[in-house]
């Protein structure tokens, strides 16, 4: 049983990023950076309980056979030490040995299809697995050509990574593939810290009672996500807003077009989450740090944080 999402104290930015990714999976994943003991993985894992159901033909391994009904959105936690064959899928060992049948055993990518794939300590994951994840996440399809098998199946998932920058930074080309990036800090406010302690303690001792206490809040969030998913496609962006987004990206010198695309998609998802049918400048301002902070060209001698640079650019545009 995971800690209820709604019971997490503070960490508004992280919660916002996760909700946006839940509303529009095309955002391209969320990367959560933070020091130890800031509740990164707690928040991400708690998201699993919040996801509304989806039609069965959109989730999990699809080998072409029809399926009916609805299933919960898959949430797959990629364990460290997972081997490539279990990630992409491989020959079914049991059937190969027992009956000599060549059959495909779907891997974690197949299981995550239509849902979320979470990698804790993403900077400790082996390079070739990270490359593989990014490749599949970008193409939405898993192509297996190994062990004499030739299989392809849909693998559309939202990649969520978390890590501690002290333990080694991510390669920039990898960072850029994540749609949103969040920096987490421990709350410094005494009251908040007491509240965290109180809730963690209560959850630890009486998890069932604690979950029941937060059940209504959780239901409300699930409904919000479901409603957001339903309307996100119809949220409109006016030309003025598009121009604002482009100017912002130019002003902060964000590399590539991916930043602009993510900025617009996440602003739209935020509007949908709030039940508004048109994106306004406020939405852009709120998602801009999330969508752009990891795409700014890094100046080794500039001490100014990326977030500060984005905020400054936003202020200039507003003036």
């Amino acid at each position: 049983m995971s800690f209820p999402f709604s019971a997490i104290v503070g960490q508004d930015e992280m919660k916002l990023a996760l909700l946006i990714a839940a509303v529009d999976p095309r955002i391209g994943g969320v990367m959560v950076f933070g020091d130890r003991g800031t509740g990164k993985s707690t928040a991400v894992r708690s998201l699993a309980a919040l996801l509304p159901h989806v039609p069965a033909e959109q989730a999990g391994y699809q080998d072409g056979s029809p399926c009916k009904g609805s299933v919960p959105v898959p949430f797959v936690d990629l364990p460290l030490g997972a081997t490539e064959d279990r990630v992409v899928g491989a020959l079914d060992l049991e059937r190969a040995l027992g009956a000599g049948i060549k059959a495909f055993e779907p891997g974690l990518l197949a299981r995550a299809n239509g849902g979320f794939l979470y990698v804790d300590e993403v900077n400790l994951l082996e390079d070739h697995i990270v490359d593989l994840l990014l490749d599949v996440a970008a193409s939405g399809e898993n192509v297996v050509e190994r062990d004499g098998l030739s299989v392809r199946h849909p693998a559309r998932f939202v990649l969520i990574g978390s890590g501690n920058p002290e333990e080694g930074e991510l390669r920039p080309q990898l960072l850029d593939r994540f749609g949103l990036s969040v920096e987490v800090r421990t709350p410094q406010d005494l009251g908040q810290r007491v509240e965290i302690l109180k809730r963690c303690d209560m959850f630890e001792r009486e998890p069932v009672a604690f979950a029941a206490k937060w059940h209504r809040a959780e239901r409300k969030t699930v409904k919000r996500i479901a409603a957001g998913r339903a309307v996100v496609a119809s949220v409109t962006l006016s030309d003025a807003i598009l121009a604002l987004a482009s100017r912002l990206c130019l002003n902060v010198a964000a590399d590539g077009l991916r930043g602009e695309l993510t900025l617009m998609r996440s602003a739209r998802a935020l509007a949908a989450l709030e039940g508004v049918c048109e994106v306004d400048a406020g939405h852009i301002a709120r998602v801009a740090p999330l969508a752009l902070r990891h795409r700014l060209r890094r100046d080794v001698l500039d001490e100014t944080g990326s977030t500060a640079r984005i905020e400054r650019a936003l202020e200039e545009l507003a003036a």
Partner: peptide, 19 residues
Amino acid sequence: ARIAAVIDTGEVVIERDGI
């Protein structure tokens, strides 16, 4: 990191070698 993950979640999750 592997040990830390197991301490955090209270379970060992293995996805390796077809298992």
